[in-house]
């Protein structure tokens, strides 16, 4: 579903990804772990198509299609989703207005009928309740005055509302207490299925107790240095990233 081949990418002229290969087939959840500065967030932004994150070599294929020329909104319409590590605050745009505009834009791009206000509110109510989100939050400016945990829940709300084919979760666990972590994981797990894939980026193993990955990769120095089954995450938890620090250091 998502296939990354020999990806080299620069940020502000500095090469951060240096030949990364990854394939996540439909129906699987892969975890991407690694020390700080290894390029995890860069990878997520490159997949989403953020300006300033430039691919210098290699390519990212989504459903067999090269994403290089696709705008972020085209990627979203095609079914890619990024849950941000640092969700952006937008005063004056309410969460409801934002969700409705996004959902209908995506539906329209997919040739589906746009939802009217009634159908939209019904869906929103259902998804909001499942994540334990206070509906008052939906009337406020997007992420404005939200706590770290509320922001992350809001990301997962967007995920469940838009139900993309493939989601990248960038450190969605950071800033969450254990109860919030469980709720967020349930939200993600509810979407798992044979035709959907996930890339879960995390620094800690904790989230993977709740979202069980099929594969775990270690990113260091801009490339994948080790891959394995779920047990790899447990090893990392025990031994730390020390063994990869050298590779990471060399890269930086």
């Amino acid at each position: 579903m998502l296939k990354i081949e020999n990806l080299h990418a620069t940020v502000g002229g500095k090469e951060v990804l240096k030949g990364l290969d990854l394939e996540v087939p439909a129906g699987e959840v892969h975890a991407m772990m690694g020390p700080n500065g290894s390029g995890k967030s860069t990878l997520s932004y490159v997949i989403a198509g953020r300006d300033g994150y430039e691919i210098t070599k290699g390519r990212i294929l989504f459903d067999g299609k090269d994403t290089a020329e696709m705008e972020p909104e085209e990627r979203a319409a095609a079914g890619l989703f990024l849950a941000f590590q640092y969700p952006v605050e937008i005063p004056g745009v309410t969460t409801t207005n934002f969700l409705k505009t996004a959902l209908n834009a995506v539906r329209k791009a997919r040739g589906e009928k746009e939802l009217d206000a009634v159908a939209f509110l019904k869906l929103q109510k259902e998804k909001t309740a499942a994540l334990g989100i206070d509906t008052l939050m939906l009337k406020r400016g997007l992420n404005v005055g939200f706590s770290g945990g509320e922001k992350k829940r809001n990301e997962v709300l967007q995920l469940t509302m838009l139900s993309p084919k493939f989601a990248v979760l960038d450190e969605t666990d950071s800033g969450l207490d254990i109860d919030a972590l469980k709720i967020v994981a349930e939200g993600v797990n509810s979407l798992r299925g044979a035709d959907r894939g996930f890339l879960v980026i995390t620094h800690y193993q904790r989230l993977l107790d709740y979202i069980k990955p099929d594969r775990v990769h270690v990113l260091a120095g801009g490339k994948i240095v080790k891959s394995g089954g779920p047990e790899l995450a447990l090893e990392l938890e025990k031994d730390g990233y020390g063994v990869f620090a050298e590779q990471n250091g060399k890269a930086a």
């Binding site: 300006d51 909104e73 941000f84 937008i90 934002f98 996004a102």
Partner: peptide
């Protein structure tokens, strides 16, 4: 705000609509 614009676009909102939303919010 580039970040805000990217955030909206990453959710499938076309660039012009995203810009309008931000402008509307600003003047609002």
């Amino acid at each position: 705000d580039d970040q805000a614009l990217f955030y909206l676009k990453s959710r499938g909102i076309p660039e012009n609509t995203a810009k309008d939303m931000l402008i509307e919010a600003f003047l609002g």
